[in-house]
Structure formats: structure tokens, C-alpha cells
């Protein structure tokens, strides 16, 4: 049984954020997530990272929407995530939608 709690978040990458690569985006989102102090689920191994999966990658310079799944160690309230995350996302990344995947 998959005990991880998953939330699908749709974000919009625009403005100067267009110039940050997909690799940068992973870094930006992980740090934003860490700043929320919510119980993130980390990958195993010697270099644990916040686990997340994307539906696609945007090209450098391209603006648009991406869906990303965040993983948590326990149940997280959708509204709480919305409030905390929007406070911690940099200019150029906008939160469009939040959806609980399992729970």
C-alpha cells in the first residue's frame, strides 16, 4: 500500500521564471515546499530530495502551465497547502489549482 499522501498542484511559469530551466524549477519548488514546513516525503538514499513528479517540462523561454505532484509523509490539508505555498512561491510562478490525488 502506498502510504504517501499525494497532492497535484498546477502552476503557471511566466515572467522572468521563463528563463529558469526545468532543473531550476525542481530546486525552486523543493525550497518553497521546505519553507512551508509541511511534512514532505523525501526520496531514499544518500542524497534525499523532496519527491515530486511533473507531467511535462517547458522549454527555456516558454511560459505555460505544468502539473506537479507533491508527496507528503502524512495527510496535508489542501487549503493549508494553498496558503503556505502561495506565500513561498517566487514571482513568476503562480498557483492555479490544487487537487488531492489520494487520501
Amino acid at each position: 500500500m502506498d502510504k504517501r499522501f499525494k497532492i497535484k498542484v498546477t502552476i503557471r511559469k511566466e515572467g522572468i521564471m521563463r528563463y529558469f530551466s526545468q532543473l531550476d524549477l525542481v530546486r525552486i519548488l523543493e525550497r518553497a515546499l521546505r519553507r512551508t514546513q509541511l511534512p514532505i516525503f523525501f526520496t531514499q538514499g544518500f542524497n534525499p530530495r523532496a519527491k515530486m513528479s511533473f507531467n511535462k517540462a517547458l522549454k527555456l523561454g516558454e511560459k505555460g502551465e505544468i502539473e506537479v505532484i507533491f508527496y507528503f509523509r502524512e495527510r496535508v490539508d489542501k487549503e493549508l497547502l494553498r496558503i503556505k505555498l502561495s506565500k513561498n512561491l517566487p514571482k513568476g510562478i503562480r498557483l492555479r489549482n490544487i487537487e488531492i490525488v489520494n487520501g
Partner: peptide
């Protein structure tokens, strides 16, 4: 057009804090 330059991230000012 920042795309004309290598690593345009260097010149943008959007860092957190």
C-alpha cells in the same frame, strides 16, 4: 532577450529574499 545569453539566470533578480 535573455535567451541570447548563456545562463541568463545570472542576470535576473528573482532570488528568494
Amino acid at each position: 532577450n535573455w535567451l541570447n545569453f548563456q545562463k541568463p539566470q545570472r542576470y535576473l533578480d528573482s532570488e528568494w529574499n
